[in-house]
Write a protein that binds this DNA or RNA. Sequence first.
DNA 1: CGATGGATTGAACTGGTTCAAGTGGAGTGG
DNA 2: CCACTCCACTTGAACCAGTTCAATCCATCG
Lengths: 256, 256
Amino acid sequence: MSISPINISGQNSKKMAHSIRQNYKNNGTLCDGCVSKHISLCNVMDQNNLGILSGISTNLRKKAKQIICSETDKAEYLYNIRSGAVRISKMLPDGRRQITSFLFPGDFFGLSCKDQHSYTAEALTNLEICRFPRKKIMGLFRDFPELNERVFDMTRTELDSTHARMLLLGRKTATEKLCSFLLNMKAQPSLLNEMANDEVDLPMSRSDIADYLGLTVETVSRQFTNLSKLGLIQQGGPHRISLKNIESLSVIAAGG
Amino acid sequence: MSISPINISGQNSKKMAHSIRQNYKNNGTLCDGCVSKHISLCNVMDQNNLGILSGISTNLRKKAKQIICSETDKAEYLYNIRSGAVRISKMLPDGRRQITSFLFPGDFFGLSCKDQHSYTAEALTNLEICRFPRKKIMGLFRDFPELNERVFDMTRTELDSTHARMLLLGRKTATEKLCSFLLNMKAQPSLLNEMANDEVDLPMSRSDIADYLGLTVETVSRQFTNLSKLGLIQQGGPHRISLKNIESLSVIAAGG
DNA sequence: CGATGGATTGAACTGGTTCAAGTGGAGTGG
DNA sequence: CCACTCCACTTGAACCAGTTCAATCCATCG
């Protein structure tokens, strides 16, 4: 899929930048044919008929459970998810694990570090991802302020959401944690259209959820049954949950 | 202190930008006379003889315990700390609190949200801070890529450190948490020069530390005495700690 | 000098963990 | 097609790290 690289600082790029900027002003998107509400780098790249970013990217497929990059790797690439789900995690030497985020189509990762990844990224499901050399994409930021702005914007939004998760990890009870988690998953924009009214699809295992919420598998499982008994959710198998009372769930999630 | 605004998109700014860029290339700093290793927005502003940023900033003083901005406020400003320390926190309706970060000279805040702050910032000590209207500073990013790059860079670094803190909050024991905390404070660049070899100055209260680590005051206090008994630290009053065995502390902090 | 508020210490308690057993559904192979 | 295996999930019961509640200490300040 990878095309020969383009000299990004040449005259060519200025024209392209101009054209993209126009499109951005007119349509609010960064490129022609950009269908997604959550514009991703991939959208910028793939659906960009001008092919500006194509030259520096590589499309990859990964099977579930494959590792995309690990804590010891050099951070050479920026990754963008096209389809599937990814988990980002950090480990302590004795195996304790904290999942810092679940990522979905449109999300990217691989930018929040200097020269070495400080986390491991693994495929939760089968994946299509898109890989950009960091150096080149960072270089592009000057020529394409809109691209820079978008990535910066996403980074700031992510930072904001990590604050909310610190509150969750440090101060919420097990029940509150699970309710928050279910509502977050429900609100996940890239999963919105795929599910019926009150249903949530959870592509991750109970143990992933536990490591995301700072709990054990057993506690997570118990909380699921608790919420079921209270009639707030209904379980159609471990990965398919119906939220029966979003109002109550929200109250609990918010901490009373 | 605030000087009349400058038209940032005029010809003037281009010259200034060029001059700053040259300086950056030559000296690795964003402006003349920039003394700090951790170049801050304030450094860019204050010590910049060209006065580019002065026009849009306001210098403020706050006394300890004063609120700088709270969770309900509109996010109109970007703040940069010149001296003193700040705590950033989030609260649950029933009063449970999570401190998401302690900030020191050179750090900034107020950027990681859309239009409303999602956290409260309070003065931990007496403060000198510098306030920039977000709109204007964001506008400057296009004219001063170096400024943009630096702020983006700091944001990414901060995001990375929140990942480490999620691991701490979700998976570390009380002792591990406190050791990590002490070492982090020791490594705080803006406090480095002020303290002797093994001493750390903790400007925050035990209850702040507790809310930062997701523990109770009592547990924090007990952990301090534990570490003292083990000979790993020595307490010269609640706010002055000597790290007597950084190696061991590091091993514990890393999780065994 | 007493009052105030952070910090420490003690002792009982508990939410969540740990350890252990049981369940059920998907995949496999005979 | 059934039996067997595997593994994720659930459930139960004992346990414990950290909390809660309560008392005390101690430095600061009017």
